[in-house]
């Protein structure tokens, strides 16, 4: 049996955004930075919902969403685990970074900076 994970997310809830999205983001980030390790066992839906004091459907949806992206796997009767495939985690990290870059670009564009100007800023030359 895999060792019991002591991981519980630390989320400040924004009540005007879907909660499962916020939990997905937090879990992706925790997996990317290694706070949740490859193969780690996750709390049951019931335990995590009680811990977070949120609707159990929210936690179920979070797990389902991350299972779809292959970051989590559920073994029937055993529970839900982080994938043990490092490539999937690596790809997820890139997705997080890509999204951050896209947001940065959009932000820069909204104040009239071109991608080149942004790039120069990133090099410390802008």
């Amino acid at each position: 049996m895999t060792e019991e994970s002591l991981w519980y997310p630390n989320v400040r809830i924004d009540p005007s955004r879907p909660l499962y999205e916020q939990f997905c983001e937090q879990m992706r980030a925790d997996i990317a930075r290694g706070a949740l390790q490859l193969g780690a066992r996750l709390p049951s839906v019931r335990d995590l919902a009680a811990w977070l004091r949120v609707n159990p459907n929210t936690v179920m949806r979070t797990y389902q969403e991350l299972e779809r992206g292959k970051l989590l796997v559920t073994h029937r009767g055993q529970g839900t685990f982080v994938t043990d495939d490092a490539r999937i985690v690596e790809e997820s990290k890139r997705d997080i970074a890509r999204q951050a870059v896209a947001e940065l670009r959009a932000r820069a564009a909204s104040i009239g900076l071109t991608t080149e100007q942004l790039w120069l800023l990133g090099q410390g030359e802008g």
């Binding site: 019931r46 009680a50 004091r53 159990p56």
Partner: peptide, 12 residues
């Protein structure tokens, strides 16, 4: 109280 309510209702 909130945690117990959630745990109790979790099975739907």
């Amino acid at each position: 109280i909130a945690s117990s309510v959630v745990a109790d209702l979790a099975d739907g």
